[in-house]
């Protein structure tokens, strides 16, 4: 886990020490990156030039360094961590099966996966229905 904003490392320290450590025991365990000029945000497409800040961009990167998922929100709406964790678990499952299995919408660990192939074409409805998404 890496977090990035345009704040300096000094402000990161103050935020951690005076607020975040009161929400998380022991303070923030990961690196809080300072991207003062927005250079990292620019290559990830989340830096807003006119505001001088970064949008709520979230990238899931696999062990090969490949970006598997991205989500970008404007500032007023917060994220849902549970959905990010669900996606990471789903990508980890797909990776563990070397891509032989795929996870349907809303998939949670332990639920049915799909094995793409000619036999499944037009027959997904037999094994998966929208009400299985929770």
């Amino acid at each position: 886990m890496l977090s990035v904003s345009v704040d300096s490392v000094f402000v990161h320290k103050m935020w951690n020490d005076h607020e975040l450590s009161k929400m998380v025991d022991g303070g923030i365990p990961f690196h809080m990156v300072s991207d003062a000029a927005g250079n990292v945000g620019k290559i990830y497409g989340v830096y807003n030039e006119s505001l001088g800040v970064e949008m709520r961009g979230r990238f899931i990167i696999d062990p090969d360094g490949i970006i598997q998922a991205m989500e970008v929100l404007t500032p007023p709406v917060g994220r849902r961590l549970a959905e990010t964790i669900r996606q990471i678990k789903a990508f980890q499952h797909v990776r563990a099966t070397q891509g032989k299995e795929a996870t349907p919408a809303g998939w949670e660990p332990g639920q049915l996966t799909l094995t793409p192939g000619p036999g499944l074409v037009g027959r997904v409805w037999e094994v998966w229905q929208p009400n299985q998404e929770r």
């Binding site: 977090s3 402000v11 970064e54 899931i60």
Partner: peptide
């Protein structure tokens, strides 16, 4: 390792 890279508008 799996990496979660998160940007946000600002501290505080």
């Amino acid at each position: 390792k799996w990496i979660l890279l998160c940007f946000y508008p600002g501290d505080f």
